[in-house]
Design a protein around this nucleic acid. Structure first.
Lengths: 170, 170
DNA sequence: GAGCTTACGTCAGCGTTATTGACTTTCCAA
DNA sequence: TTGGAAAGTCAATAACGCTGACGTAAGCTC
């Protein structure tokens, strides 16, 4: 952080990490890293007729089995029509199962089939491998900082979705 | 590796931050944070006929003035045709200036016009505001960790582009 | 029970961003 | 002078997002 322009001042905090140049580098780091982040699963998806949207749907259905369409809509932040197109192909291909709600029959609860779980595994294995390697190289403290900054960067509603999933999976 | 079945071993490092659950949370954090990351400039762009691709082009032309088309192609990781469509509109709208190379007349060097710089400012102000707030909330150590992890997540070539730009701007 | 709302699905149309493939012009360099 | 690199363009295609509109089933409320 301190980049050679003198020791931290009497404010008790060195604010050099908030310069425009530092912020630009943060922006560029996000851009380049996100490309790496999606690269591995993307490679798997091109061979099928699927794209990133399918991956996201599969990820969150696996993460929160039995979730309703409306709930998924909120998490993914897309329109009903966009999600439905993806969901339709996933159901037709036998990767996702849609089940009418017991208490509220208007709702459809979404689950992965065995085939869906298999694809989820393949995709997230690829993505986790990179994440694991990055985490290991960076070390636990860097990972904690990484998470802290990302959480601070989310929109409040997204932060809620994130926290809910986190508590769910823990 | 150690996945939560006991205290840290004699390796001297607690590897609990590498469990699958931790990695999943990292993946989800990236997903939700990237949405926030792009949300503010996106809001500005919808009012014009532009999209995220225009933003990226403008950002990197501003960052490395005089860059060639080929160089930009490498940084953005898109095809010539994709970039060209974006570039054409930006030049037609007077935001970007394309200048034939002096030593090599095949090359076109790209610069922002005054109007282009103004838009770049507006876009990056919006994006930096969120980044600054996230950085400040998280603190310098978290920011350092954030950057370390993101760098470890990049593809090697992307890391080179990132480093070159970093040295350029510093 | 009537009427409003909610959850879901779907049709049609559109825009942005990306792709591949093929072709041309210009121009540097061996 | 010839090969190849840099750039620009045309055409076709696909993934993914959007809006608007419509229909059905079902829950809820008065």
């Amino acid at each position: 952080m301190a980049d050679g322009r003198g020791p931290s001042s009497h404010t008790g905090e060195n604010l050099l990490f908030l310069t425009d140049e530092q912020l630009r580098q943060g922006i560029e780091a996000m851009f380049f890293a996100y490309r790496g982040f999606t690269a591995d699963p993307d490679k798997i998806l091109v061979d099928m007729a699927y794209g990133r949207a399918h991956h996201r749907a599969i990820h969150f259905i696996n993460r929160a089995p039995g979730t309703t369409v409306n709930n998924l809509l909120g998490i993914l932040g897309v329109t009903k029509q966009s999600l439905n197109r993806v969901l339709r192909t996933l159901i037709a291909d036998g990767l996702v199962k849609s089940q009418v709600g017991k208490t509220d029959k208007r709702e459809r609860h979404l689950y992965l089939t065995d085939a869906g779980r298999a694809l989820e595994q393949a995709l997230s294995d690829a993505q986790r491998m990179r994440m694991r390697s990055a985490f290991r190289d960076a070390g636990p403290e860097a990972v904690a900082g990484f998470r802290t900054v990302l959480e601070a960067m989310m929109d409040p509603e997204m932060h809620h979705s994130y926290t809910r999933l986190k508590e769910n999976g823990a």
